[in-house]
């Protein structure tokens, strides 16, 4: 039986078929896959876009990349199924490069998102394929200033101010709702992003689920990756800065 009840039996087998109540159930599964991923967060301020996320940490494995540079002025991060995300990152880089080839200029953030979402949408309308199990954040600084966009597995585009997707996103969304203000300063926004990621780590720790695997658990600045995208381009926030913010929050970093 389908997890959506008897009515949907059979209709969850393909994206190329609607259920009788008008849903594409495979897509809803894809969103579940997306939300199983580690938390990814984006906040837009007047001067820069902040793009951040959690990475798994293990003594045995090298740290994951999580946030990828797409062009001089654009970075992207995804939550969900990593292998699918990599494909989209490559696609995004290709789209950005094509724009430079054709127009001799940097691509607009929204245009990149639209072209990437066109690609993702194709995987919801044809048989024999499954949709991407990731939601992807695209943050950049273009002719309009700092802008960020979120594209979900179905290819829907959301222009965003502050948003997050991934494990425990409900709690972090609540935090963002309370604290985000369009006039927020860059420093406050960076703090808010770190706070959101710390909250997700704490929630994860409460469930103790990581204990079973080779991955480290608990709040650690080493699990937090954040980049800032502004007029100058994409810049990684130094580990020490993140550590200081976590300490100032009263959380135990390490």
């Amino acid at each position: 039986m389908s997890r959506f009840g008897d009515q949907a039996v059979g209709y969850d087998k393909t994206t190329s078929m609607f259920s009788p109540d008008g849903r594409i159930i495979q897509l809803e599964y894809a969103r579940v896959a997306m939300r199983r991923g580690l938390l990814t967060i984006a906040i837009v301020t007047k001067e820069a876009v902040i793009l951040g996320g959690l990475i798994p940490l293990s003594k045995l494995l090298l740290p994951a990349e999580k946030i990828y540079q797409i062009d001089d002025h654009i970075a992207a991060a995804y939550a969900g199924y990593t292998a699918d995300g990599r494909v989209l990152i490559n696609k995004a880089r290709d789209i950005a490069y094509q724009n430079r080839l054709i127009f001799g200029e940097e691509i607009d953030v929204y245009t990149l998102a639209e072209e990437l979402s066109d690609y993702m949408q194709q995987y919801t309308q044809y048989g024999g394929v499954r949709p991407f199990g990731v939601g992807i954040f695209i943050g950049g600084y273009d002719i309009y200033g700092p802008r960020a966009v979120f594209v979900d597995p179905g290819g829907t585009i959301f222009g965003i101010r502050a948003y997050c997707v991934g494990r425990d996103d409900e709690k972090v969304i609540k935090l963002l709702k309370e604290r985000y203000d369009p006039e927020i300063s860059y420093d406050d926004a960076l703090k808010l992003a770190v706070e959101g990621l710390v909250l997700a780590m704490k929630e994860e720790d409460k469930r103790k689920e990581k204990k079973k695997t080779e991955y480290e658990s608990g709040v650690s600045h080493e699990r937090v990756l954040i980049v800032r995208i502004d007029k100058e381009g994409v810049k990684r926030i130094p580990e020490d800065d993140i550590k200081k913010i976590i300490e100032s929050l009263g959380g135990d970093s390490e």
């Binding site: 054709i102 127009f103 001799g104 200029e105 607009d108 929204y110 245009t111 639209e114 002719i143 309009y144």
Partner: peptide, 18 residues
């Protein structure tokens, strides 16, 4: 229509040159 802005003169020129 696609980009909700006017193209730059450079963008038009580079496109035509291609």
């Amino acid at each position: 229509l696609e980009r909700r802005r006017k193209p730059l003169i450079k963008e038009i020129s580079r496109y035509l040159s291609l």
